[in-house]
Design a protein around this nucleic acid. Sequence first.
DNA 1: TAATAAAAAGACCTAAATATCTTTTATTAT
DNA 2: ATAATAAAAGATATTTAGGTCTTTTTATTA
Lengths: 148, 148
Amino acid sequence: MLSKSCVYALRAIVYIGHNCSDTKKIGIKEIGEELELPFHFLSKILQRLVKHHIIQSTKGPHGGFYISEEAKQVNILRIIDIIDGLSFFEKCGLGLKECSETHPCPLHNDFKVFRDGLYHLFLKKTIADLVIKIEDGNAFISNLPQNK
Amino acid sequence: MLSKSCVYALRAIVYIGHNCSDTKKIGIKEIGEELELPFHFLSKILQRLVKHHIIQSTKGPHGGFYISEEAKQVNILRIIDIIDGLSFFEKCGLGLKECSETHPCPLHNDFKVFRDGLYHLFLKKTIADLVIKIEDGNAFISNLPQNK
DNA sequence: TAATAAAAAGACCTAAATATCTTTTATTAT
DNA sequence: ATAATAAAAGATATTTAGGTCTTTTTATTA
């Protein structure tokens, strides 16, 4: 449902949110190593997030990525929109163009419940919410990414 | 979430279920035209469904695909398993390998609700359920597939 | 039994997602 | 100023999903 790019983006943001401070910025190298994500691919993703002002960066020695407290209030759906777009949440489960409330496909009503539920979940969850979770001890790093 | 192959499979099965009878089998050509699906691609998909005994086929003049009343009782999840596999329903939302009940990722509990809900929806819905829906007038054909 | 119709099978092609490599630009410290 | 460091940018490679084309096999019917 979420692309790898999108999942990598979320994990990287949370890592930055958890580890950066006024004095400490986080390099791609560190993120890539800790989260076991491919360096260059990750760097493209972070670039996009910088362009959309989700995170900030500075070049040069002691440069790296960081995120403001304000930006941590951004919701997950916003990140999904930037990386993948929101078509998943708008699309018919059977791929029918004209499936709608008034002209539903056979799965429409049942499918809608979950699709809309996910939408609202991602809408209400912020980056800060995820950062707090890992600070409370939830799994995050020292987890290899799933293969397949 | 579901691949195009999988969605094409579901639509084709429902079309066959709705249109075939003891005397009438349905050709790929007809299915492809009615549902606006690519002929050869569809044929690969139908082959797989035949191999897994979801539908049957005969070659030669007046040959085509058909489905037994018994096979219509197969649930949607089975089709998803054959075409895409069930990894979506087993995977962590953030792609973490070791995310689990006892060692959850920050999204685990919230995400699980919807992932499991979808699982049970697809588990309880049968092909026959979808066929009945379209016989009751739900959207199905004369709908171009969504592009994107 | 030959012609025809249909699916099956195999080879191949294309586009998008994912991943890597190289060069450039900006920043900092010496 | 210069060297070193780190992100930005651009080009290229790989993999996978999606799609097409051609040949073969099987069944029917004239």
